[in-house]
Design a protein around this nucleic acid. Structure first.
Lengths: 179, 179, 179, 179
DNA sequence: TTTT
DNA sequence: TTTT
């Protein structure tokens, strides 16, 4: 059945990358989408939407996007529930990302000098991301934002275990690289 | 910013119609959207997605749709939170419906004989729903599924108060009627 | 980049199924989507949107859907062009369907008795299609609506040759069957 | 019925702003959306999608966006036709934009110095565009990119005359301004 | 060239 | 628990 979501917004924090026991990369992130209208106090509010990405998209996201980065997400809504430490049922709603577009990186806050956005770049020919990737940012070499959890099932906020880590030969190509 | 959702699925219960203190109709409903893939046990699961509709769409939904009815929903994700009776913060995610399409009514389970689907109807003129509305189902006369709450703010599950009940002259035309 | 379309509407004709030289099934069909508003003459117009489906989706569509059938389509916009017999450039816009939902079959117009919609069916448990598939409708056995073109490239309206017939192991599972 | 499109891509040319005889602003523009996969030659192609915006969105677009600017568009597909000078019927497909997000301005190619993107701006308060509008860019004062056509019906590529220029009190608020 |  |  049709279950289709598109969001454009900013990461509220650095994405959180983990690996399942089977070694599959999963990234969790929250996208803040500002509303296009103001409330009665004249303020513009935002919706904070939890998202999950898998595999290469997860790794690319963790490597190239930061708190504040602008992203486009196409995916589907996934609902679930778990029991918290008080035995209380908590219902969850997440967007499972099928496709993520890196619209704008956020400069690294540290002294890294990475993700710099040259003012006079010539970026004809296609992709919308606006940064020059340095070799050391390659996801194969040293994933950033990575945490050392290995068992997602310890964490009630981890994505559910059934059916959402597409196994098999759906291996993504270099087309998933954001450049 | 872009925040766009489209769902096609079935109502898990009759829609719940209320009115705000200002007299604005609000309907809450949950759409079950079956996943297009099976889990590791070979079962097809579903996502249960909470939705809100306002004004005439809310009234039409409550009048014509039932548990099991197939609907299309176009809208946006809205997040919020409230504190439950234990003082615990609960986060909510709902779809605010901009546009609802009645794809198929579900026969009333009671002896009503309403919402019957005549096999030889002539229903030219546009909408895809397949039933003849009886006069007594007119939303002006006697809204069905209605509850007598008048103050949504008593209810933590009610839609938030700010900004989502578009006031003013956005009055809907008869185009909103599902026939 | 994000290029996302969702439509719900009716087939203007029976879908047209062909096979590429490589043996890949392609279906072309047009979805009429009625507008939700009326024009200045008070009439409700429609948009007629050309779509393409590939492989098992194409075959299922051709087997189970007919002129008048209600479908949901999720996909992306694809543009192209060709030169007509007068050497004039013609620009094309099509929706490439990633996912098709069969919302309602249309009874076969002939005496077939297929695709009948029993009035008292018990269809709990999920899928939205409303018909009982007869064995002889199985897509493996005898595809319907099929034409005997084998070389799509003879036809300027055929889908372009580059990149849109995902080769390889993306073979669809039985989940694609509409029941 | 549901007819929903979301695109993120770049303008292929400066938007073309006109006014109907009734004085309603209309902008036409084409969005290039790069495909996420490569063709058999290993090249990444793009789809070139014609779009229309109305009223304040049209004016804002013409004032702030240029060839190369990155935009998000949410809208619906509209089909139509006209007869060309040879009396040949030409079919058209356009996206009618309900909502446009300015994701990134493109610096004016001329010596203007407009649309510069200060590196240390403070742009709190909502929108994702990253530039400071100069007073002379205000849409009320001197619309840019404007052409002096007054009768859209002279132009077969103009948006159709029926029903798509919502008259009346749908006047947009300042929320439509891109800052 | 269009569905209901 | 939130981005700009």
């Amino acid at each position: 059945m049709i279950n289709n979501v598109v969001l454009v917004g900013r990461l509220t924090k650095d994405p959180e990358l983990r690996y399942t026991q089977g070694g599959v990369a999963v990234a969790r992130f929250t996208v803040a989408v500002n509303r296009t209208f103001s409330n009665q106090q004249g303020d513009r509010e935002a919706d904070f939407i939890n998202c999950v990405a898998w595999r290469k998209q997860a790794e690319n996201l963790a490597n190239f996007m930061r708190k504040g980065s602008l992203v486009g997400v196409q995916g589907r809504i996934q609902t679930g529930s778990y029991d918290d430490k008080d035995g209380k049922r908590v219902y969850t709603t997440d967007i499972v990302a099928d496709n993520i577009q890196f619209l704008e990186p956020r400069n690294a806050t540290g002294g890294g000098g990475n993700f710099n956005q040259p003012s006079q770049q010539q970026n004809y020919g296609g992709q919308s991301n606006q940064f020059n990737a340095q070799p050391q940012q390659s996801y194969q070499n040293q994933p950033m934002n990575q945490q050392n959890y290995t068992n997602m099932n310890d964490d009630p906020f981890s994505a559910p275990s059934q059916g959402n880590a597409p196994q098999g030969s759906v291996d993504m190509s270099d087309d998933d690289l954001p450049f």
